[in-house]
Nucleic acid binder design. Structure first.
Lengths: 238, 238
DNA sequence: GCCTGTTATATTGTATACATTGTGCCCATT
DNA sequence: AATGGGCACAATGTATACAATATAACAGGC
C-alpha cells in the first residue's frame, strides 16, 4: 500500500483529499456496522492514523463525525470507543424507526419504479445468500442497506439520511442485545415487503414494516450486562 | 488577543475547554437560528477564531459540527457559509417535521405533567410577548424552542435531537422563503395545542399540529431567488 | 499482604507553522 | 479598449510539536 499511498499523497493535491477522508470514514463506519469492531472497542487516534497513513488531524475529524452519528463515543480525555448503546437508547432507536420507516411506506409504494423494485429484490436475495453461507458481516450490512435504500425511495433525503444513522445504530444494538445467529430481519420478510410495495399497497406495507420492526425489537434480550466488578459503580456512580 | 489567550490557556486547563467549545457552538448556532447571521453569510475561520479567542482548530471542529447539522455549508476550498436551503430541502424538512412531530403528539399527551404544561405555557406567552414587542430574533428562537421542548416531552431523546436540527433548519428556511413580519407559528396556535395536550387528547393534538405545520409551510413563498446576474449559472451550472 | 500515594508513560487537546489552492488584480497583447 | 494570462494575496487543508491529563505500575507504609 505504501506505493499507492505515496503516489496518492503526492497526486492527491486536488480535492481528492476529501474523497480519501470519505473513504476512511466509510471504512471505519462499515467496520462498526458490520460488527468487526465491537461495541466498547477502543479507537486510538495514533493507531488509526498509522493504519490509514494520514495524520491525527484527519482522524479526529472522522471520529467527531462518527461521534455525532452516535457510532462512537468520545470521552473527554479518554479517547474514542465504539458506542455501547444503553437499553433506553435501543428503545428510542427502534421507536424512531417504527415511526419513520412505517410512515414512509405509503410514499415509497407510490413512487417506486420497476427498476428500483428489482434492485431491492436483488439486495434481498444477496442478503439471504450471505445469510445461508454464513457471511454474517455481509448479511448485516445488506440488511441495513435494504432499509436505507427503502427510505431513500421515499424521495425525502433528510429522512433517508436519518434512517441511515438509525440503521447503523441498530446494528450496534443487535451486536449488544441480539442473540447470536439471529440477526434481526427474517430472511423472507424483505421479499414480502417488496411484494406489497410493488402492488402499490402502501398501507399493507406500512403494517408489515411495523410488524417487521417490532419482531426485531422483540428478539432482543434487553439485559444491561454489568461489567466484571461494577456493583459500586451502579450504586453510587453518576 | 495574546493576553486573553495566554490567560485562558492557563486557566482553562481542566475540562472547561469542552464547555467553552459548547458555548461557542451555541453562540454561532443561536446567531444562525435567530437569523442574525443570514443564509449565505460567509464564516471565515480566522475571523471566528479571533472573535472567540481560540485557535482555528477549535473553530473548525465547531464548523464541522454545524455542517453536519446542515446549518452551515462547507465548500471544499472555499470555506464555510450559512446554508441557504433549497426548495427541495425545505419540503423535505417540513415533511419530516409533519411525520415526526405529529407522530409524537400522542406520546406527549400521555406523558406530559402539569409542571411541564406550565413550562410550555410560559414559553408560549414569552413568545407572544416577544412578537408584540418586535423582538423578532427572540420570538423565532422561542418558537423553535417550543417545538423542541415538545418533542423532548415524548421521552424519545433520539427523535427529540432530530427535531431540534429540523427546527433549526426551519429557521433558515423561514429566513429565505418566509415573508417578513410573518414568522411561521401563529401566536395563539401554541396555546391551543397545549390545551389539547393537557386534556390528554393526543389525536386532536396530532391533527392540530398537522394543520399548524401545514400552515407554516403554506405561508412560504417558494421562489428560488436568483442572484443578481445569474442566468448563465442556472443554465449551465452544476 | 493489601492498600495508598507517587511517578512514569501513553494518549488526547491545542496551537502554530507550512503547504496548497482559489480569487482578484494588473499588465501586456491584440 | 477588451480579453487573456500571470502574479500576488488570502484563506483553507494538513501535519507536527508541545502541553495537559488519565492510567498503570511501583514502592512504601500500615
Amino acid at each position: 500500500m505504501s506505493d499507492a499511498q505515496a503516489a496518492g499523497k503526492r497526486s492527491a493535491s486536488k480535492a481528492e483529499g476529501d474523497e480519501r477522508h470519505e473513504a476512511i470514514y466509510r471504512a471505519v463506519s462499515d467496520a462498526i456496522v458490520e460488527q468487526r469492531l465491537k461495541p466498547g472497542a477502543r479507537l486510538r487516534e495514533d493507531a488509526l492514523a498509522e493504519v490509514f497513513s494520514i495524520s491525527r488531524t484527519g482522524i479526529r475529524k472522522i471520529l467527531q463525525r462518527l461521534a455525532l452519528e452516535q457510532l462512537v463515543t468520545l470521552t473527554p480525555r479518554r479517547g474514542a470507543s465504539v458506542t455501547r448503546p444503553t437499553a433506553d437508547e435501543a428503545k428510542d432507536v427502534f421507536d424512531a424507526r417504527q415511526l419513520i420507516e412505517c410512515g414512509l411506506m405509503p410514499d415509497v409504494a407510490r413512487r417506486m419504479s420497476e427498476k428500483e423494485a428489482a434492485e431491492l429484490r436483488d439486495m434481498a436475495q444477496r442478503e439471504r445468500q450471505a445469510l445461508r453461507s454464513g457471511q454474517q458481516s455481509v448479511a448485516i450490512r445488506l440488511s441495513a442497506d435494504f432499509h436505507v435504500r427503502l427510505a431513500q425511495l421515499s424521495g425525502n433525503a433528510t429522512l433517508a439520511a436519518f434512517v441511515e444513522t438509525l440503521c447503523s445504530r441498530s446494528s450496534l444494538i443487535l451486536a449488544v442485545y441480539g442473540h447470536r445467529g439471529h440477526l434481526g430481519c427474517e430472511s423472507h420478510d424483505h421479499d414480502d415487503l417488496i411484494g406489497y410495495l410493488e402492488a402499490g399497497n402502501g398501507e399493507r406495507a406500512k403494517a408489515f414494516m411495523n410488524r417487521h420492526l417490532k419482531a426485531i425489537e422483540a428478539s432482543l434480550s434487553m439485559v444491561e450486562e454489568e461489567d466484571s466488578a461494577p456493583d459500586l459503580q451502579q450504586i453510587f456512580g453518576g
